[in-house]
Simulated assay, not measured.
Amino acid sequence: MGALDGKVVLVTGGGNGIGRDCALIAAQEGAKVVVNDLGAGLKGDDAGSAGPAEEVAALIRANGGQAISNSDSVTDLDAVYGMVEQAKKEFGGLHAVINPAGILRDVMFHKMTEADWDAVIAVHMRGSFNVARATIELFREQNDGAYMFFTSTSGLFGNIGQANYGAAKMGIAGLSRIIAMEGARNNVRSNCLAPVAWTRMTQSVPIKDEAAAERRKVMAEKIRADQPARFSVAMVSPA
Rank of each mutant, 00 (worst) to 15 (best):
A67P: 08
Q66F: 04
P52E: 00
Q86I: 06
Y81A: 00
G48D: 02
L42S: 10
L77W: 10
I68W: 04
D78H: 08
G64I: 09
A67K: 06
E54L: 04
A79W: 01
E55Y: 08
D72T: 15
S49W: 08
A62F: 01
V56E: 06
V80R: 08
G51M: 05
E54K: 14
D46P: 05
A50G: 10
G82H: 13
I60C: 01
T75N: 05
E85V: 00
L42E: 07
R61P: 07
D76M: 07
S71E: 03
V74F: 13
E54I: 01
V80P: 06
I60L: 02
E85R: 15
Q66N: 09
V80Y: 07
P52N: 02
I60N: 02
D76C: 07
A58C: 05
S73Y: 05
D46N: 13
M83D: 00
I68M: 04
L42H: 09
D72I: 08
R61H: 10
S69L: 03
Y81N: 13
D45A: 07
A47V: 12
D45F: 03
G44I: 09
V84L: 11
S69W: 01
I60A: 02
Q86V: 04
A53C: 06
L42R: 13
M83V: 03
V56H: 06
T75A: 14
A53D: 05
A58N: 15
Q86K: 15
P52D: 01
A79S: 14
L59C: 04
N70G: 05
E55R: 14
D72Q: 15
L77P: 10
A67H: 08
A67M: 10
A53L: 05
L77N: 06
G51Y: 10
V74Y: 09
L59D: 12
T75D: 01
G64Y: 12
D72K: 15
S69D: 07
A53G: 08
E85C: 00
A79Y: 04
Y81D: 09
L77E: 12
